[in-house]
Design a protein around this nucleic acid. Sequence first.
DNA 1: TTGTAAGCGTTATCAT
DNA 2: ATGATAACGCTTACAA
Lengths: 334, 334
Amino acid sequence: MKVIAREVGVSLMTVSRFMNGTGKVAAETARSIREVAERIQYRPNRLVRGMQTGRTGLIGVVMPAGLGFYSGVLEGIHDHLSEQDAGLLLSMVHGDWGERAIEEERKLLHRLIELRVDGIILRPANDEATALYFEEIVQRNVPIVVIDRHVPKFACDFVGTDDVVGGEEAGTRLLARGLKNFLLVTGGDRFSPSRDRAKGFRDAVASANRPVTVDTLEFPTFSPNEDAILEYLTEKGAKVDGIFAVNDNLALGCRRALLKLGRRIPEDVSIIGFGAVAIGGGYFIPVSTFDQHADLIGRTASEMLFAQIERKAGSSAPPSKTVRLAATFIDRGT
Amino acid sequence: MKVIAREVGVSLMTVSRFMNGTGKVAAETARSIREVAERIQYRPNRLVRGMQTGRTGLIGVVMPAGLGFYSGVLEGIHDHLSEQDAGLLLSMVHGDWGERAIEEERKLLHRLIELRVDGIILRPANDEATALYFEEIVQRNVPIVVIDRHVPKFACDFVGTDDVVGGEEAGTRLLARGLKNFLLVTGGDRFSPSRDRAKGFRDAVASANRPVTVDTLEFPTFSPNEDAILEYLTEKGAKVDGIFAVNDNLALGCRRALLKLGRRIPEDVSIIGFGAVAIGGGYFIPVSTFDQHADLIGRTASEMLFAQIERKAGSSAPPSKTVRLAATFIDRGT
DNA sequence: TTGTAAGCGTTATCAT
DNA sequence: ATGATAACGCTTACAA
């Protein structure tokens, strides 16, 4: 800017005003500035600008990536951020459990604060101990939106799937087929998506006007142990005719086990998953499932984050908002 | 820092020195500083620090995300950056073709420059017209590593798969089965991975010591048109007994077409894909393929980028390096 | 071991 | 419509 100011013969301020469109600049002056800027390939330093204005234009995103669902969310976030001319600072989390994950996540959040991000979108590693790392964010009044996993102990904006209703619909659909002996495959109760889908399913099945049974298989790591499934199906679960798994990965594990036992899908056993995990054009997960509209979750989260950021200026303190998007059933004939 | 300095009763500089470990600070002073910093939850402003030192600790990554391969690459990059305490600024590209993609990509690169990233990792949208947007990067001497798609017109560090050798191995393996009539399914010649894999395959097959045929089907958008495949297989390609597709998506398209025609895999037709696209735990792409070690590509790219960044200080100008990682065959019995 | 002064590239504020 | 000056939060260079 100094160079431009000198060459054009104006002060730094005139150049600054031209660059960020604040205040009036004479048409003639503007032309010269534009010309010189172009010639010397001037690129404003966004970081310094951020230091001045208090808005860096950077948004921190903390989530496990790689999996289909989260890349969809990430894409939704990214697209909205692009429209807002904001940058996406990505931190991927790996482990899901235990103290280590929490410690790791705290460090990531610290880093984001040190980078002075304008806001944070977070998929929490853990329902527990969240006060620990939310504390600082609250103190500093950093805008934040939580996605996918609801954290009951911390009131802030949340965007996720309507898991309870999704689970209910799964139950209703299996019931409508006249099935009676259900297997519910979950990841345990530690995370809201699994917990809520299971709850919805149980509620729906419990309200059937005929006698039904529901057995539950839990895989706390969300990875289906095929041996355990086989064992269940050959012993206690010999009569199972309907399976709901809280995610597609678990559903696929069941599918493989069933095929191994020679049980036909859906003639002998119906099966429904959740998540519509899909990968680029044409790959196909052979299990009826629910589309969570991942990209929309991401976009919504980003929009809510910006609403918070804009609000900060006005400094009102509205109540936190919880948004749950309906999952859409995808019938793949299983 | 000002607050800490005042409370402890030292100058700003002492605090600064303590914070970044430069110079000596008395043990006693250090204790006090640490204490106050802890109490007031001081977090250094990395952006300002970057402005001063010329290193922001931010790395820009420009690539299409979402697909399995790229999320693997992203993960590799991310892990290395974490180790280096650097931040990952992600820009996702959507369209792959035409002027628009190039324009979009230029804007992204500009943004990264405005953010003063220390370096850039780029999966180029296009082999053509690259000088256009590389020009500025070269002028500004911004460290950059290109991945996946080799850009012949621009000499810079590159990391990708050894596509030619991979294609050769596919050919060799099909030949070893005694097959004679091949179908090569490509995405055309515009991008190096498709082009090179096809070249390798053709070379291998051409060196067979028996008469063979090779037909080629091109899908410039990399999405398999099942009708076109069916048409080919029922007419000209009735005798095809071996298929090599330059990526798994195309291979799966062929698989579906074959199954529809009642051709058995691999009894009637052998098929090999490329890319080992996989998604979280347990999903399974039913086509023999090659693992590109995506995460290693990402990590290597990041390492090479940091080598450049460190070199910048020393300002020597070494030749650019091209690294090609071998793809590993994954036998899935097809 | 600590301090002083200047500077990084930009915007805010108040004046002209 | 333009300018002067201070300020943002930190580091570098030099001095004590």
